[in-house]
């Protein structure tokens, strides 16, 4: 497998994480608003996203493994430029996981409520940190970084603004996606209540995607042509978000557009980042000998993982019912 193949694998892994873990990132902030003061209601919301936790976050772990093995120099560039963001990402991730696993283990109300607040904060910080890191990749793995270092005012503005926009975009898209997952899996009134925050998040998501598209156009204008693809993807995502909002306003909650909006929006920050940063990433890939030597073990492993995950999803993804295992 050449550098392009490894780049595609990395993109697929990151997109898988955004899709699966995004359900948790977006669903957990709904625990307190939808559950209110009733603990079992809160746990129903948690149960709706629970299977996505273990099966989702490994995709980012695997992506980090591929980054380390095949794109070690990219990792060095990103970590050097985004050091505080990486630390924030780690802290948010770890705190969210601990909060979700520990909250229901003891029954004291204050213990549970405390962890719920923690989980909610960490679930906002996690996509924000990931989005900001993606923004750092836009800057450092395109012409923008070098031009900003060279003193170009436009490039410096982009270097500051892009991570902020992508961070906001990741938060808004996760919120839409997670809310739709809760709406699809939770029972009755909880599901209906989950649609409201989705509706509210769609317009900010569309606005941020449009801003991101403008940023991508600016990156393209400065010289990284592949950013045009990102602009197109982001405009399309904004369109999907607005169409979904239109359907929800009409009271149509289960149209194709609404159903597609979650996955499309969840994945678009990763896809756009891959388009902007792709060429520079591939140029910094490890030597062909290293890439070639790892091809078969990694592809074999990935095939096994896909089978295992497909089987798991068949078993686990169904609306909550008497045979649902509640643990979180």
């Amino acid at each position: 497998m050449n550098a392009l193949g490894w780049g595609l694998l990395l993109t697929v892994l990151l997109a898988g994480w955004a899709l699966l873990d995004g359900a948790v990132q977006g669903g957990v902030p709904l625990v307190r608003p939808l559950g209110g003061r009733d603990d079992s209601r809160r746990r129903v919301v948690l149960a709706a996203v629970a299977p996505f936790l273990l099966l989702g976050e490994v995709w980012l772990v695997a992506a980090a493994g591929v980054l380390l093995a095949a794109f070690g120099h990219v990792e060095a560039v990103l970590w050097a430029a985004g050091y505080p963001v990486v630390v924030a990402l780690l802290v948010a991730w770890v705190v969210r996981d601990a909060a979700l696993w520990l909250r229901s283990r003891l029954t004291a109300p204050r213990w549970r409520q405390g962890w719920d607040v923690t989980a909610q904060a960490a679930s906002l910080a996690l996509p924000a940190a990931f989005g900001a890191l993606a923004g750092v990749a836009w800057v450092r793995l395109s012409v923008v970084g070098a031009q900003a270092d060279g003193g170009s005012g436009a490039a410096q503005a982009l270097a500051l603004g892009v991570p902020v926009v992508t961070a906001g975009l990741a938060v808004a898209t996760a919120r839409v996606h997670g809310g739709l997952v809760v709406a699809a899996r939770a029972p009755g009134t909880t599901a209906q209540a989950a649609v409201r925050p989705v509706r509210r998040a769609l317009v900010p998501a569309a606005a941020l995607a449009t801003l991101g598209a403008l940023g991508a156009l600016a990156v393209a204008a400065l010289g990284t042509a592949s950013a045009l693809v990102a602009a197109v993807l982001l405009v399309a995502a904004a369109g999907v978000a607005l169409a979904a909002r239109f359907d929800l306003d009409r009271g149509v909650h289960r149209s194709g557009v609404v159903r597609a909006a979650g996955p499309v929006l969840a994945v678009v920050p990763v896809a756009a980042t891959a388009a902007v940063a792709g060429p520079a990433t591939l140029a910094l890939a490890a030597s062909p000998a290293v890439l070639h030597g790892l091809t078969w073990p990694v592809l074999g492993a990935f095939a096994a993982v896909l089978v295992a995950q497909a089987v798991s999803w068949r078993v686990l993804v169904r609306p909550l019912g008497p045979r649902t295992a509640v643990f979180l």
Binding site: P51, L53, L54, L55, E57, V58, W59, V61, A62, A64, G65, V66, P297, V298, G300, A301, F302, A304, V305, A308, Q309, V311, S312, V315, L316
Partner: peptide, 14 residues
Amino acid sequence: TMAAFFLESTFLGL
């Protein structure tokens, strides 16, 4: 990460 841990976490979730 790709083989061992990915599968471990998937099976544990299952």
